[in-house]
Amino acid sequence: MAMTGLIKATGGRGVFLVAALSLTLLAACGEQRSALRAPGALDDYSAEQIYQLAETEMDGNKLDNAAYFFGEIERLYPYSSWAKRGLIMQAFAYHRAGDYDNSRSAAQRYVDFYPTEEDAAYAQYLLALSYYDQIDDIGRDQGLTFKALQELRRVIEVYPDSPYAESASLKFDLAFSHLAGKEMEVGRYYLKRGNYTAAINRFRVVVEQFQTTTYTPEALMRLVESYLALGLNDEARSAGAILGYNFQSTPWYADAYALLQGHGLSAEPVGENWLSQIYRQVIRGEWL
Rank of each mutant, 00 (worst) to 15 (best):
Y159V: 05
A19V: 03
A93D: 06
Y122Q: 08
Y45F: 12
G264V: 06
Y94R: 12
V111S: 03
L21C: 04
L87G: 01
P160Y: 04
P269D: 04
Q32G: 08
M221A: 10
A175N: 04
R280C: 00
R37S: 11
E268D: 10
T10W: 13
A254M: 10
G98C: 13
Q277R: 15
V206E: 06
G139K: 11
Q150S: 12
K62H: 12
Q49Y: 01
A128P: 10
S34Q: 07
G240S: 03
Y279A: 07
K192W: 02
G262C: 07
R154K: 11
M221G: 05
Y125K: 07
S276Y: 01
T214G: 13
L26G: 01
I88P: 05
Q211M: 10
A241F: 09
V18A: 14
S80E: 01
F70S: 05
M3N: 04
Y159N: 05
E185W: 11
E272P: 00
A41D: 03
Y68F: 14
N246H: 09
F210S: 02
A256V: 15
E286M: 12
T145A: 13
A28W: 04
D141L: 06
D133T: 09
L42M: 12
S226H: 14
G14P: 10
L170P: 00
D161I: 00
I50A: 03
I50M: 05
Q134R: 14
L179P: 08
L170A: 05
M184F: 09
A54E: 10
L129I: 02
K171P: 02
D173H: 15
P217W: 13
H95Q: 15
E157M: 14
N195M: 12
T212P: 02
V111H: 03
A267R: 13
L174T: 13
F176N: 13
Y114W: 15
A148N: 05
E235Q: 12
D119A: 13
Q134F: 02
P217S: 10
Q108Y: 11
H95R: 15
L275H: 06
P269E: 03
P251I: 09
E268L: 13
P160A: 04
R284W: 01
R284K: 12
D112W: 02
I88A: 04
Y159E: 04
V205S: 13
P160K: 04
G86V: 08
W82V: 02
Y245F: 14
Q32F: 01
T10K: 15
F69E: 03
Y189A: 06
R37W: 02
Q281P: 00
F69Y: 13
V111D: 03
S162R: 04
P39S: 02
Y79K: 14
T213R: 11
T212V: 11
Q108G: 09
V282Y: 08
V282P: 00
W274P: 00
R104S: 12
A180M: 09
N102S: 09
N273E: 00
P163S: 06
P269V: 05
R140T: 13
F247A: 09
M221I: 03
R33W: 01
A254N: 10
F69I: 04
V206M: 07
Q209P: 00
P251F: 06
N195K: 14
Y215H: 11
